[in-house]
Protein backbone atom coordinates (compact mmCIF):
# COMPACT_ATOMS: atom_id res chain seq x y z
CA UNK A 1 0.00 0.00 0.00
CA UNK A 2 2.99 2.22 0.64
CA UNK A 3 4.10 2.04 -2.96
CA UNK A 4 0.77 3.07 -4.47
CA UNK A 5 1.23 6.85 -4.33
CA UNK A 6 4.75 6.44 -5.78
CA UNK A 7 3.43 4.30 -8.65
CA UNK A 8 0.73 6.87 -9.29
CA UNK A 9 3.34 9.60 -9.37
CA UNK A 10 5.46 7.53 -11.80
CA UNK A 11 2.39 6.96 -13.95
CA UNK A 12 1.87 10.73 -14.06
CA UNK A 13 5.54 11.56 -14.99
CA UNK A 14 5.93 8.80 -17.57
CA UNK A 15 3.89 10.54 -20.33
CA UNK A 16 5.87 13.77 -19.79
CA UNK A 17 9.18 11.91 -20.17
CA UNK A 18 7.88 10.11 -23.22
CA UNK A 19 6.72 13.35 -24.72
CA UNK A 20 10.07 14.94 -24.01
CA UNK A 21 11.83 11.98 -25.57
CA UNK A 22 9.56 12.12 -28.57
CA UNK A 23 10.16 15.85 -28.79
CA UNK A 24 13.84 15.34 -28.56
CA UNK A 25 13.72 12.68 -31.24
CA UNK A 26 11.67 15.06 -33.39
CA UNK A 27 14.16 17.86 -32.84
CA UNK A 28 17.07 15.60 -33.71
CA UNK A 29 15.28 14.46 -36.84
CA UNK A 30 14.48 18.07 -37.67
CA UNK A 31 18.11 19.04 -37.11
CA UNK A 32 19.31 16.20 -39.33
CA UNK A 33 16.78 17.15 -41.97
CA UNK A 34 17.72 20.81 -41.72
CA UNK A 35 21.35 19.85 -41.89
CA UNK A 36 20.75 17.74 -44.98
CA UNK A 37 18.75 20.49 -46.66
CA UNK A 38 21.40 22.99 -45.68
CA UNK A 39 24.10 20.73 -47.04
CA UNK A 40 22.09 20.22 -50.22
CA UNK A 41 21.78 24.00 -50.64
CA UNK A 42 25.47 24.41 -49.88
CA UNK A 43 26.37 21.81 -52.50
CA UNK A 44 24.07 23.46 -55.01
CA UNK A 45 25.67 26.78 -54.32
CA UNK A 46 29.12 25.24 -54.78
CA UNK A 47 28.03 23.61 -58.01
CA UNK A 48 26.69 26.92 -59.29
CA UNK A 49 29.93 28.65 -58.29
CA UNK A 50 31.99 25.95 -59.97
CA UNK A 51 29.83 26.18 -63.07
CA UNK A 52 30.43 29.91 -63.13
CA UNK A 53 34.16 29.39 -62.67
CA UNK A 54 34.16 26.80 -65.47
CA UNK A 55 32.31 29.22 -67.70
CA UNK A 56 34.76 32.01 -66.91
CA UNK A 57 37.71 29.71 -67.52
CA UNK A 58 36.14 28.55 -70.74
CA UNK A 59 35.73 32.15 -71.86
CA UNK A 60 39.30 32.89 -70.85
CA UNK A 61 40.45 29.80 -72.74
CA UNK A 62 38.48 30.87 -75.79
CA UNK A 63 40.07 34.34 -75.59
CA UNK A 64 43.53 32.82 -75.28
CA UNK A 65 42.90 30.48 -78.21
CA UNK A 66 41.82 33.46 -80.29
CA UNK A 67 44.93 35.36 -79.28
CA UNK A 68 47.09 32.36 -80.22
CA UNK A 69 45.32 32.15 -83.57
CA UNK A 70 46.05 35.81 -84.17
CA UNK A 71 49.68 35.38 -83.17
CA UNK A 72 50.01 32.36 -85.47
CA UNK A 73 48.85 34.44 -88.42
CA UNK A 74 51.12 37.29 -87.38
CA UNK A 75 54.03 34.84 -87.23
CA UNK A 76 53.17 33.62 -90.75
CA UNK A 77 53.14 37.21 -91.98
CA UNK A 78 56.51 37.91 -90.40
CA UNK A 79 58.10 34.70 -91.69
CA UNK A 80 56.96 35.28 -95.29
CA UNK A 81 59.79 35.98 -97.69
CA UNK A 82 58.55 39.43 -98.82
CA UNK A 83 58.74 40.61 -95.20
CA UNK A 84 62.13 38.99 -94.57
CA UNK A 85 63.47 40.47 -97.79
CA UNK A 86 62.18 43.91 -96.88
CA UNK A 87 63.98 43.65 -93.53
CA UNK A 88 67.21 42.48 -95.20
CA UNK A 89 67.10 45.51 -97.46
CA UNK A 90 66.08 47.84 -94.65
CA UNK A 91 68.96 46.83 -92.42
CA UNK A 92 71.27 46.42 -95.41
CA UNK A 93 72.28 42.89 -94.40
CA UNK A 94 74.91 41.40 -96.66
CA UNK A 95 73.22 38.04 -97.01
CA UNK A 96 73.22 35.72 -99.97
CA UNK A 97 71.62 32.40 -100.75
CA UNK A 98 73.82 29.37 -99.99
CA UNK A 99 75.53 27.43 -102.74
CA UNK A 100 74.51 23.79 -103.22
CA UNK A 101 76.63 21.74 -100.84
CA UNK A 102 76.59 24.42 -98.18
CA UNK A 103 73.22 23.23 -97.01
CA UNK A 104 72.83 20.04 -95.01
CA UNK A 105 69.55 18.60 -93.90
CA UNK A 106 69.42 16.98 -90.49
CA UNK A 107 66.58 14.68 -89.62
CA UNK A 108 65.86 14.18 -85.95
CA UNK A 109 64.68 10.60 -85.63
CA UNK A 110 62.53 9.15 -82.93
CA UNK A 111 64.13 6.25 -80.97
CA UNK A 112 61.87 3.85 -82.87
CA UNK A 113 63.00 5.24 -86.23
CA UNK A 114 66.66 5.25 -85.17
CA UNK A 115 66.44 1.63 -84.02
CA UNK A 116 65.62 0.37 -87.51
CA UNK A 117 68.71 1.99 -89.09
CA UNK A 118 71.67 -0.46 -89.11
CA UNK A 119 74.62 0.73 -87.05
CA UNK A 120 77.17 0.35 -89.88
CA UNK A 121 75.35 3.16 -91.74
CA UNK A 122 76.37 5.54 -89.00
CA UNK A 123 80.08 4.93 -89.67
CA UNK A 124 79.52 5.58 -93.38
CA UNK A 125 77.93 8.89 -92.62
CA UNK A 126 79.75 11.50 -94.65
CA UNK A 127 78.13 14.88 -94.82
CA UNK A 128 78.49 16.53 -98.19
CA UNK A 129 81.51 18.77 -98.10
CA UNK A 130 80.79 22.35 -98.96
CA UNK A 131 81.97 23.33 -102.37
CA UNK A 132 82.96 26.95 -101.97
CA UNK A 133 83.23 28.93 -105.13
CA UNK A 134 81.63 26.31 -107.32
CA UNK A 135 78.72 28.56 -108.08
CA UNK A 136 78.94 32.32 -108.50
CA UNK A 137 77.60 33.72 -105.26
CA UNK A 138 75.46 36.67 -106.12
CA UNK A 139 74.36 38.98 -103.34
CA UNK A 140 70.71 39.72 -102.89
CA UNK A 141 69.59 42.08 -105.60
CA UNK A 142 67.59 45.17 -104.94
CA UNK A 143 64.42 45.14 -106.99
CA UNK A 144 62.82 48.41 -107.86
CA UNK A 145 59.18 48.67 -106.95
CA UNK A 146 56.56 50.71 -108.71
Amino acid sequence: MKNKPRRQARNQTAPIGGMLLTGLKFLVMLAILTGLVDYYIYLNQKIAETERAILNNRQQLSRTIREIEQLRIHKEQLSAWPHIRAMILRFDLDLREPAPGQVANIAVLSPAQAAVIPLENASNFNPAAPAPGTVPQTPLRRVSRN
Binding site: E97, P98, T134, T138
Partner: peptide, 14 residues
Amino acid sequence: GERLLRLMNIPPDP
Protein backbone atom coordinates in the same frame (compact mmCIF):
# COMPACT_ATOMS: atom_id res chain seq x y z
CA GLY B 1 66.41 29.03 -112.24
CA GLU B 2 69.69 29.99 -110.59
CA ARG B 3 68.00 30.64 -107.27
CA LEU B 4 65.85 27.53 -107.50
CA LEU B 5 68.80 25.25 -108.11
CA ARG B 6 70.43 26.64 -104.98
CA LEU B 7 67.25 26.24 -103.02
CA MET B 8 66.83 22.67 -104.23
CA ASN B 9 70.48 22.01 -103.39
CA ILE B 10 71.31 20.72 -106.86
CA PRO B 11 75.08 20.97 -107.34
CA PRO B 12 76.47 22.28 -110.64
CA ASP B 13 78.42 20.10 -113.01
CA PRO B 14 82.05 21.29 -112.66
